[in-house]
Simulated assay, not measured.
Amino acid sequence: MKNLVFALSIVFVLSACSSDSSDNENQVITLNPTNLEIYFPPVNSNEWETISIEDLGWNSAGEQPLYDFLAERETDAFLVLKNGRIVIERYFGDFQQNDNHAWNSAGKTLTAMIAGIAQEEGFLSLNDSSAAYLGTAWSSLSTEQEAQITVFNHLTMTTGLDYDVDDIFCTDPECLLYKNEPGQFWFYHNGPYTLLDNIITNAVGQDFEDYFSAKIGSRIGMQGAWVSIGFNNVYFSNARSMARFGILNLNNGVWDGQTILGDATFLTDMKNTSQNMNQAYGYLYWLNGKDSYRVPGSEIEFSGKLIPNAPNDLYAGLGKNDQKLYIVPSEELVIVRMGGDAGETLLGPSSFDNELWGLLNDLMD
């Protein structure tokens, strides 16, 4: 019965944040590529400019193999945007444009940007001890050990907390044990990341979800909700909302003339290597084009690029069951994939990334 009530609660929340297609007819404006300055879809509207594969000079013969691959790999929604304009928008099975889907760990990118906004507004500093916002005894460490862990460590997966625990998602003090000095080892440990929600809430004096909505979500036209599932705080939205956030990233924190995040140093650091233990990790963003990378659940460093088939400057939000938000500045692309597990049940990067980019290269050739 408890599980049923929880499930119904999620349905209610997600229904409340969905657009009603009967009240707001979807509109598209087809555009020829004469002027491809970045486009921002209007807030509180389904209007969205499109541009065709043919007008871009892409290889239309690559479309069907791409769609077949996506359908075979449990995809629900797939979007490709060029300069903010929709090139491809496909939904599979019963999934529709206004349906909501979990971002899973791709939503870490939302937390990274809202942390940057909180710092820009003077509520916190990445160099602050996280104990300044979490209080003492938030872990099983001594007060002195807690004081050494900074907000920066939470943002970069370098807290030094023990990841060899039964539940890496657990945020209870008994799950947060000392293993290494902070900043000395990188491991994809979800519990310390989740505590960023409390850090931001206590720093700004406003509920995390409300602050996110006021500073990002409502300003760029995202619809969605943060839903507590176990220890995790998971963002749900439709695919177009994920695409809107991608456009905000592509335009360096500015939305249609409105500065959402203006701290150029934070933006640069967020999307570049944040520490010397995992070159492919920024502030909760995954980075391509580096000489080596580490992945969730492993202590091994792998040689080569994270996604060999993808452009070197790609950065991404990557979530469990292959939720994907790719941003490629050199190609002015935003690509969204939502759906079920594509075959490996991993928390972030997977072989699906490279296979997908092989097909995208065929399409864009």
Rank of each mutant, 00 (worst) to 15 (best):
A280Y: 10
R240G: 01
F152Y: 15
S15N: 13
L176W: 10
W103L: 00
I51K: 04
V254P: 08
D128M: 05
Q27R: 08
Q223L: 08
T171I: 15
N202Y: 05
E49Q: 15
E146D: 09
G57Y: 09
W255Q: 03
G297D: 14
W103D: 00
E332Q: 14
S130G: 06
I216T: 11
G319D: 08
Y315H: 07
S52Q: 10
K179A: 14
T201D: 12
T201E: 14
G289R: 09
A115S: 14
I10K: 09
Y281Q: 08
L284G: 04
D128T: 06
M242N: 01
P42G: 07
N312T: 15
Y326D: 01
V227C: 04
G191T: 11
S330W: 05
S140C: 06
N202F: 05
L141N: 13
F212M: 10
N3W: 05
F69G: 02
Y39P: 12
T268Y: 10
Q64M: 06
M222A: 01
S228K: 15
P41V: 00
T156F: 08
Q64R: 13
L8Y: 11
G191C: 09
G221P: 14
Y281V: 02
W255T: 01
L14T: 15
W138M: 03
G62S: 08
I114G: 10
R244F: 00
H189I: 01
G339S: 06
L110T: 05
E47K: 09
Q148M: 11
N233A: 02
A71V: 01
G84H: 06
T259A: 11
N249T: 00
D162Y: 08
I200Y: 07
N26T: 11
S21A: 12
T259L: 05
A310K: 07
I114F: 09
T136E: 12
W357Y: 14
S140A: 11
S213K: 13
L267W: 13
K2A: 15
S21V: 13
A137H: 14
M157E: 13
I53H: 09
S330E: 06
E209Y: 12
F12A: 15
D256R: 04
D256M: 06
Y293R: 02
L318A: 04
V28W: 09
G230N: 11
I88L: 13
N354Q: 10
D99T: 02
A214Q: 15
W255A: 01
M222P: 09
T109D: 00
S9A: 12
L134T: 07
L31G: 02
G257T: 09
E355I: 03
S130R: 08
N312I: 04
D269S: 12
D207Q: 11
A102K: 06
F95P: 03
G319M: 03
S140P: 10
I216A: 06
V28Y: 11
L306V: 02
W48N: 04
G340C: 03
L306K: 02
V234C: 04
S18V: 01
F245L: 00
M364N: 06
N249R: 02
G317I: 00
N249L: 02
N321P: 07
G262C: 12
T158I: 08
